Simulated scan of single mutants.
Amino acid sequence: MAGSIQAPGAPAAVGHYPHARRVGNLLMLSGIGPRDPKTNAIVGHVHDADGNLVSYDIDAQTRAVFANVRAVLEASGARWEDLVDVTVYLTDMAADFKRYNAVWAEYFPDAASAPCRTTLGISALPTPIAIELKCTAAIHE
C-alpha cells in the first residue's frame, strides 16, 4: 500500500508536497518545522516593534516540532513510538544543540528505544526557523 498523507492537525506544507508518504509498513515524513498549525506562526519567535526577529526559543521550537511530527504520525496511523530514524537540522548547532538534546531526552528517556538520530548544522532552512525534522516510522499492524 502506498499513498500520500495530509495531516489536518499539522501546519500546512510550505511547498508542493505531502506531510508523509506510506510505502508498505514504512512512513516517510516530509521535513517538519515548528509552525503553529492554527496560526502558521513560528513558535518561540520574539519580534521587535517593527516585526524584526530579535530572538527565538529553541526549547519551544523543539517541542512544537515534536507536536507537529506527532500530529502527522497519528494522521497516518502511526504512533510516536513507531519512529525509527530522525534527521534533525539546526541552523545554529553551537547555540542550540545542548538545549535541543535536553528536550530530546525528555521525549525519549530510554536511549535504547529511541529512534536512530542524525543532527546536522546547516546555514538556513526554507523559512526562518531554527529546527526541522525529517522522520521515518515503521507502522506495525
Rank of each mutant, 00 (worst) to 15 (best):
Y56G: 14
D82I: 00
D85H: 12
A41D: 15
Y56N: 14
A124W: 06
D57R: 10
G77H: 03
Y107N: 07
T136S: 11
L125R: 04
A10K: 04
D85G: 03
G121D: 10
A112Y: 01
M93K: 08
V84L: 04
T62V: 01
I32A: 02
R70M: 02
F97T: 09
H140E: 03
T87H: 11
G44C: 10
T91Q: 13
L90K: 05
L73R: 09
E81N: 14
V69K: 10
P34V: 00
L90W: 07
A102S: 14
S113Q: 14
D82T: 00
C135F: 06
S76P: 03
K98R: 15
T39G: 13
F66S: 02
D36R: 08
W80S: 06
L133W: 09
R22G: 04
L120D: 06
H19G: 04
S76N: 07
S55Y: 06
E141G: 12
S113F: 10
P34F: 00
S113H: 13
D96M: 13
N101P: 05
A94S: 14
L27N: 02
H45K: 00
D85M: 10
T119H: 03
A94E: 14
V23C: 06
G121P: 14
R99T: 15
Y17Q: 01
A12T: 15
V43F: 00
E141Q: 14
N25K: 13
M1H: 11
G9D: 11
N52Q: 12
R79F: 11
G77I: 11
A10Y: 08
A2E: 05
L26T: 08
